[in-house]
Design a protein around this nucleic acid. Structure first.
Length: 937
RNA sequence: GCCAAAGUGGCGGAAUUGGUAGACGCGCACGACUCAAAAUCGUGUUCCUUCGGGAGUGAGGGUUCGAUUCCCUCCUUUGGUACCA
């Protein structure tokens, strides 16, 4: 009757997918009687290209885990949704006039169909779309929580703004000074820095708001944006590559705009420490640590000697206070506000010219010439506090205004950049590290013993650090300081297709909208081009923007990170209209137990999500402050492209091996008309009208294509659609094969050459349970010891592999199992039933079918994962490899509980050992129980 | 430049509290079935070999009875980051 044929596979998969849908078997409920498990995929951006075989790689792994945990007795939350706001839909709208809402909905439809065909067990009743007003109402609401909070440094947590106001009323800001101004920010800011309670009370409403803005976790400030004149728009950092726009390659310049930012820098330390609590790969943690960029050092005040006395001192940040006596000059960032104050009359011209030069430099120039040494002397001097030595103050663009204090002390013998600077401008170099400095290049060692260093002479640099810091503190001219590279997160986008900011500007100051007014819906429009002045498309909608005399909305929208920063909470309670999720659901589902997605989101998405969860936790909405317990980064599946070589100016195509004899152009050719490397020349002629009259120069009668591993992309014609694989092999084979390809975290090219092996595995399993005529054929006989051993060995290993996310080896275990059962000709129910259950997470369709054939009425999802019975696995004896001087020469079987002395005697008496030792007594015999016996001569 | 990960047959890859390297799959070779081919099934498959054995996990060194696994130096590849003091 039924063979495991293409037709049968199709019938089985359609049958079960339909049944799952009808019976809603994947619907999940909050059920405190069961332990919970939350398995999450990074939700996709629904692009127009649909799914390719690379997308499901991570989804298959989570699907296996979700199904596995479910049959292990967990209540599993395994949802899916769409990161539906974003630039491509907007770009598509500009080019084709299709509203982003429509194209996005269409794309989601395509995605959903493709996902369903792979047999995923998502609870679709919990689907979220970030562009749905019912969803982004809460994105806006959380944004307002950030707006309404500040970071209390003494408690290291977020608090409400109203608490800050009452602190100000009682004691001013003496205990809560202004946070460091956001790096890179130069625009106007609150003029009042420090104040007492009476001063606070005297301030106007507006002045109070300005000060509060300096504390809010979501705040408005003038910050640099990447302005692209040619595109008439602002670009995100990742849309700028080497100073040029990602689309079109136009020059990009910095431009100041008043924008929203998130004060993520206040959370730098907690974001860093939190990494110790979560199970992310070390390299992932390193990338985040790197990004946060913590560095310990000191800030040191230097007195200034200049013509004008308006500025009497400057502060530098250094990680090497131990090198204080090696300071030969100071460098200040050109943008630093003290520059014009200290510049001597005689140096005005030189400094002015240099400032103009710096201003003229575009990002591209700076990127291209990082090693170029430039600078100007201000004519002012700084005084070393320890030896009163006067050193010149320079300005140079290698010192960044946005990091530390925007000023450094130059120690040429210890720092490479300082050294090159000193050499270039002929500044004399002081050597404080003796022979460690060769006069040619700087040596950033920590190991040298200091000399020329006054009270530090003879002290190791490592130890001098502490000595200097103590002295600085004692003198009141410096202290220990920690700096972070991380910047506050720019949160405004000059775009249409995103969440509007839920604020109203009155007199240019933003005020939060009330919760009952949310969501602030994105207005409908047909005009998606930016307004040209650097504002987003919403600025064109005057009626929407201007809501009253002197009352305006924000024309910007939030970045896509906003919706993605908390979506995993919404899945817990997706239809709640009163809260972003109920406390009950949040407490029950809690952290995401395992989160799977691409490493391209390692920095931005993960940091923002971690930030939002920490803030919500601080404000009392959550009882956990890290969202993801475990993170797996699945590798990308790359495409394996094929090329044909056209002889220039002709329609002749030459085979790869002989192409060098001609002048040719390589053209991508659709991988679907190439068999391995051999081109189907007839199909090629039909592929595109241009090639209708193609002629071929063959080698050995074949046209051989060239190849390259590239990103899977439509334009390279190397995209493999999963539907195509499902068409010929079925979803179960696709799933198993993608898992079998290699470790989930590794990137690899797609290659179908091994897929037959997986298909054969299913057929063998099928044949095990069916007779020659295709009828189910199961025996109720009691299984043998061998059969039980094979089964239990397999389920034990597979269980371990799933827990380790090592799916490629679990597929191998199943193959070994079926091979062994085939050679035992085992068709016994007591073996095959547990095996089918264990296989069900990997191959849900065929296992449901077999499960039904085994006489079960309920879905296999309700089965229990088989218990491993160790008694079938324990061995009483073991065949020991006998190695002589490290080389295995023989094998001998011993009971595992045999005393070592007895084993040693038997080993030494054996023929093989006698032969190799030639009668001599060995030096020693090492016996590792259950492992190996080694005889050392 | 800096940080991290990786380097194993013809190919994808297995094996690490140090214990028989190459599991499993692909490919290839041979055999069975067939008039024949395909499909299927079975056997073999790291390399060299005078058939005793020898070499072998990027290269070189070290620790060890024993190293793919630990340590040092170097090479290559991939990812991250970059004038961050």
């Amino acid at each position: 009757m039924a063979d495991y044929s293409k037709e049968e596979i199709k019938r089985i998969e359609e049958k079960w997918q339909q049944r799952w849908r009808e019976q809603q078997v994947y619907k999940t409920k909050t059920d405190p009687s069961k332990p919970k498990y939350y398995v999450l995929d990074m939700f996709p951006y629904p692009s127009g290209a649909g799914l390719h075989v690379g997308h499901p790689l991570g989804y298959i792994s989570t699907d296996i885990v979700a199904r596995f945990k479910r049959i292990k007795g967990f209540n599993v939350l395994h949802p899916m949704g769409y990161d539906a706001f974003g630039l491509p839909a907007e770009q598509y709208a500009i080019e084709h006039g299709v509203h982003p809402a429509i194209s996005t909905a269409n794309n989601i439809e395509v995605f959903r169909n493709q996902l369903d065909r792979i047999g995923f067990c998502y609870d679709w009743s919990r689907e979220v779309r970030t562009c749905d007003p019912k969803y982004y109402k809460w994105t806006q609401w959380i944004f307002l929580q950030l707006f309404d909070s500040w970071f209390d440094r003494s408690k290291q947590k977020a608090e409400r703004i109203k608490d800050l106001i009452s602190i100000f009323e009682k004691e001013g800001n003496i205990n809560h000074r202004l946070p460091n101004p956001p790096t890179g920010r130069t625009g106007p800011k609150s003029k009042i820095q420090n104040f007492g309670p009476s001063e606070w009370k005297k301030l106007s409403e507006r002045e109070k708001e300005e000060i509060l803005m300096e504390y809010r976790l979501a705040y408005l400030a003038y910050t640099d944006v990447n302005w692209c004149e040619a595109l008439g728009t602002v670009l995100a950092n990742d849309e700028v590559i080497n100073g040029l726009s990602y689309r079109g390659g136009h020059p990009v310049v910095k431009k100041q705009m008043r924008q929203w930012s998130l004060r993520i820098t206040e959370y730098a330390e907690r974001l860093l420490k939190g990494l110790n609590e979560v199970d992310f790969s070390e390299s992932m943690k390193d990338i985040q640590r790197n990004w946060i960029g913590r560095s310990e050092g000191a800030k040191i005040d230097f007195k200034i000697k200049s013509e004008k006395s308006t500025v009497s001192s400057m502060t530098v940040f250094t990680t090497r206070p131990d090198t204080i006596f090696g300071v030969d000059f100071m460098v200040v960032a050109p943008e630093h506000e003290m520059v014009k104050e200290i510049t001597a009359a005689g140096h005005q011209k030189e400094v002015g010219e240099y400032l103009r030069y710096v201003e003229s430099r575009s990002e591209v120039d700076r990127m291209a010439e990082v090693k170029k040494i430039t600078g100007a002397f201000t004519g002012a001097y700084a005084v070393n506090p320890f030896n009163n030595r006067e050193v010149p103050i320079w300005i140079s663009e290698y010192v960044l205004a946005g990091y530390g204090t925007g000023a450094i002390m130059g120690v040429p013998c210890g720092d490479d950049r300082d050294h090159r600077f000193a050499k270039h401008f002929s500044i004399p170099i002081t050597n404080i590290i003796g022979e460690h400095y060769n006069g040619e290049e700087a040596n950033p060692t920590y190991d040298a013993t200091l000399s020329n260093s006054d009270f530090l002479d003879g002290i190791k640099m490592k130890d001098a650090m502490q000595v200097v810091i103590e002295k600085l503190v004692a003198l009141g001219i410096g202290e220990k300081q920690v700096n972070y590279k991380m910047r506050d997160a720019g949160w405004s986008r000059q775009r249409y297709w995103g969440e509007p900011f839920p604020v109203v500007f009155k007199d240019d100051m933003p005020y939060a909208m009330e919760e009952k007014e949310l969501p602030l819906e994105l207005p409908d429009t047909n005009e998606f081009k930016s307004s040209g002045s650097g504002e987003g498309p919403l600025a064109n909608l005057k009626e929407w923007i201007n809501i009253g005399p002197n009352e305006k909305r924000d024309s910007n929208t939030m970045p896509t990170h906003a919706g993605a920063a908390w979506y995993f909470l919404r899945y817990m309670d997706p239809h709640n209209e009163k809260e972003f999720a109920s406390r009950e659901a949040l407490d029950y589902w809690n952290q995401v137990d395992v989160y799977v997605g691409g490493s391209e989101h390692a920095v931005a998405h993960l940091l923002y999500a971690r930030l939002w969860i920490k803030v919500l936790h601080d404000l009392g909405y959550l009882n956990f402050d890290e969202p993801f317990k475990k993170l797996i980064n699945q590798g990308k599946i790359t495409g394996d492209s094929r090329f044909v070589y056209r002889i220039r100016g002709t329609h002749k195509f030459v085979s790869h091996g002989i192409k060098d004899q001609y002048e040719t152009d390589a053209l991508h050719v659709d991988v679907n008309i190439v068999d391995g490397f051999e081109l189907d020349t007839e199909e090629f002629k039909k592929w595109k009208p241009d090639f209708e009259n193609a002629e071929f120069i063959l080698e050995d009668g074949k046209y051989i294509c060239g190849s390259a591993i590239e990103k899977m992309s439509k334009s390279y014609f190397n995209v493999i659609n999963p539907d195509k694989i499902i068409e010929s092999y079925g979803a179960d084979t696709l799933r198993m094969y993608e898992m079998f390809l290699g470790p989930i975290e590794q990137s690899k090219p797609w290659n179908t050459s091994g897929i037959d092996g997986v298909y054969k595995f299913f057929r063998k399993l099928w044949n095990l349970m069916h007779d020659a005529s295709g009828e189910i054929n199961i025996s109720d006989e009691a299984p043998s010891k061998d059969e039980l051993k094979v089964l239990h060995k397999t389920i034990k290993k597979v269980e371990q592999d799933i827990n380790n996310f090592s799916f490629n080896t679990s597929v191998s275990e199943f193959m070994i199992c079926v091979n062994e059962l085939s050679s035992l000709k085992c068709n016994k129910r007591q073996i095959l039933e547990p095996l089918v259950i264990a296989l069900s997470p990997f191959a849900p369709h065929i296992t449901e079918e077999l499960w039904e054939k085994l006489g079960h009425k309920e879905s296999i999802l309700n089965a229990m994962y088989p218990m491993v019975e160790e008694k079938y696995l324990v061995e009483s004896s073991y065949e020991y490899p006998i190695s002589i001087n490290g080389k295995v020469r023989a094998k001998m079987n011993f009971a595992l509980d045999m005393p070592k002395e007895d084993m040693q005697k038997l080993v030494l008496a054996s023929d093989t050992v006698q032969k190799w030792t030639e009668g001599k007594d060995p030096k020693k015999v090492i016996i590792v129980p259950g492992k190996i016996v080694n005889v050392v001569l």
